[in-house]
């Protein structure tokens, strides 16, 4: 009964919050609402008995994505400051922005939406929602129970946790390609050449020692927790994605607090680190063809070991990917002082 009430509150809160995130014009507010949304989504996954996804959502949805968005909003503010005097229209937009702003420095979404655009979007979306609801309500009992099949074959999968078995054995090909997506995402962001787009500058000059203290405290704990999640993945919720997210957050903290210089010191080192997870996964997947004749078909005797090796390298690459997406700029060959002075020059 009580749990039903809890779920009802969640079910009401999620669409409400989603609607506010989308309709809010103040970007800070939208991002912070989005962080709250991510938190509620994590709670929903917990209620849906899917702790694996709750873990990933807590790390990525509520933690890292919020930080990424905040960084972007900071970058947007920095951009908007500089010339907005190209035409009368843009000045008008700027004036309207000033009028809407509740506080200096708050970026505001400038897209005007006439009522007919809203109507034209609302009607099909409502129809879609109704159709989806109707479809879900009318689900028959599926003829095939894949979850049952997965747990029947758990013995042969080499690990004791169903989710890990699906991700790294039954459907390992999907996971391999998804790791490729992560690598690709970094290359795609680098191809945008956003090197000089950075978030806003620090809003504090004092207080950094306190932050450094926190980061120094969190660093070993995050490494331990990351290792724990990786190790736990073989028999309970956890695994490479969750561990990578925690370690990626550590990387973001280190970059943010200035304890590690942004383009992680050496370009080729970073490239190798980013690619190693995918390369090892692909390499092992191909190499086992010699033994078993099929791509990604691990020899039964060494299944567990191979999965653990793959997960270990995946964790490294996932963590680096998340941190690299935060830094956005590709690593440069000539490093160090030049990069730093460029940054300084922009700020002054």
């Amino acid at each position: 009964m009580l749990s039903l009430f809890f779920d009802a509150v969640l079910a009401l809160a999620l669409p409400l919050l989603a609607w506010r995130v989308l309709t809010t014009r103040d970007l800070y507010r939208a991002v912070i609402l989005f962080i709250a949304f991510g938190l509620l989504v994590a709670l929903s996954w917990a209620r849906l008995d899917a702790p694996d996804i709750a873990l990933a959502e807590a790390a990525i949805g509520a933690g890292l994505t919020g930080a990424l968005f905040l960084n972007t909003v900071g970058g947007l503010v920095g951009r908007k400051r500089s010339p907005s005097r190209e035409s009368d229209e843009s000045r008008e937009v700027a004036e309207r922005r000033e009028a809407i702003q509740s506080s200096p420095g708050e970026p505001v979404d400038e897209v005007m939406r006439p009522w007919w655009v809203r109507l034209a979007l609302t009607v099909p979306i409502l129809a879609l929602g109704l159709a989806l609801g109707w479809a879900v309500v009318s689900f028959p009992e599926p003829a095939i129970d894949l979850a049952q099949q997965a747990s029947d074959n758990l013995e042969a999968s080499g690990v004791d946790h169903g989710v890990t078995a699906v991700l790294l054995n039954f459907r390992s090909y999907d996971t391999l390609l998804e790791i490729g997506v992560l690598l690709l995402a970094v290359v795609a962001v680098w191809s945008l050449d956003l090197g000089r787009v950075r978030g806003g500058q620090a809003a504090l000059s004092k207080g950094l020692p306190v932050l450094h203290g926190l980061v120094r405290l969190l660093t070993p704990i995050m490494i331990i927790v990351g290792g724990y999640l990786l190790w736990a993945g073989a028999k309970q919720p956890g695994g490479a994605f969750q561990a990578g997210a925690v370690l990626g957050a550590l990387g973001v903290l280190l970059v943010l607090s200035g304890l590690v210089r942004p383009p992680l010191s050496d370009g080729s080192g970073l490239r190798i680190g980013l690619a190693v997870g995918f390369a090892v996964f692909l390499g092992i997947g191909t190499a086992v063809m010699l033994a078993t004749g099929e791509l990604l078909n691990y020899p039964p005797a060494s299944t567990y070991g191979l999965i653990i090796i793959i997960e270990l390298f995946l964790t490294v690459s996932i963590a680096l990917t998340l941190a690299a997406l935060f830094v956005t700029a590709p690593p440069r060959k000539e490093q160090g002082s030049k990069e730093h002075s460029e940054e300084k020059g922009e700020e002054s």
Partner: peptide, 26 residues
């Protein structure tokens, strides 16, 4: 929706199980 209604993702299996209904139309 297909997975919810038919319980599979393999295309051949989906084709065998296909039926006209709310979920499959959507």
């Amino acid at each position: 929706l297909l997975y919810g209604a038919l319980g599979a993702l393999d295309l051949a299996t989906l084709g065998e199980l296909m039926y006209p209904g709310a979920a499959t139309w959507s």
